[in-house]
């Protein structure tokens, strides 16, 4: 078990995206999500840290950061969605896939995952209109040729409310 006391968002994310992790480490990923929910400015700080990791030249670090981002979208609620739904953060994702910015230096795997996430949010979070603006701009630019197919287990479906026991 990781020691939760004194952990910061940055230290959780460093552990969750450590390039020497042999596989995605869900203890750290969930630790990061929980820390976001505990802190007043958790979502604002988290998206800044995530953007930096997603732009890592190390593919495995970037892939893990995208998994963390996906987990945060599922577990950190509206406050986090609002931060992701700002151009300030969306622009950082656009930079990863656009050849005008970092696109030529980023692996296809990372770019495909970014596009998958953006598309899944346009479907799951229609109220976040800037996500749609960003995604359709990438389509107009020819950076996204066709909508990706999102596996059912990867769609952003909020957990259903718990069923009452023996009503």
């Amino acid at each position: 078990m990781a020691e939760a006391e004194g952990e910061s968002l940055e230290s959780w994310l460093n552990k969750a995206t450590n390039p020497s992790n042999r596989q995605e480490d869900w203890e750290y990923i969930i630790g990061f999500c929980d820390q976001i929910n505990k802190e007043l400015e958790g979502p604002q700080i988290a998206v800044r840290l995530l953007a930096h990791k997603i732009q890592s030249p190390q593919e495995w670090e970037a892939v893990q950061a995208l998994t963390v981002l996906e987990a945060c979208m599922k577990n950190c609620g509206r406050r986090f969605h609002n931060e992701v739904g700002k151009f300030r953060f969306l622009n950082e994702l656009i930079k990863v896939v656009s050849p005008k910015y970092l696109g030529d230096r980023v692996s296809e795997k990372v770019k495909a995952k970014v596009i998958e996430l953006l598309y899944s949010w346009t479907v799951a979070l229609p109220e976040e209109s800037k996500i749609k603006d960003a995604y359709y701009m990438l389509k107009r630019q020819g950076i996204v040729m066709c909508d990706p197919i999102i596996p059912v287990d990867r769609t952003l479906i909020p957990s259903p409310p718990p069923r009452p026991k023996n009503p």
């Binding site: 700002k86 151009f87 300030r88 622009n91 800037k130 701009m137």
Partner: peptide, 15 residues
């Protein structure tokens, strides 16, 4: 007011 100005400053990246 802070939120309004943040909204005004939030632009899509020029392509």
């Amino acid at each position: 007011l802070g939120e309004e100005s943040e909204e005004r400053d939030d632009h899509l990246l020029p392509m």
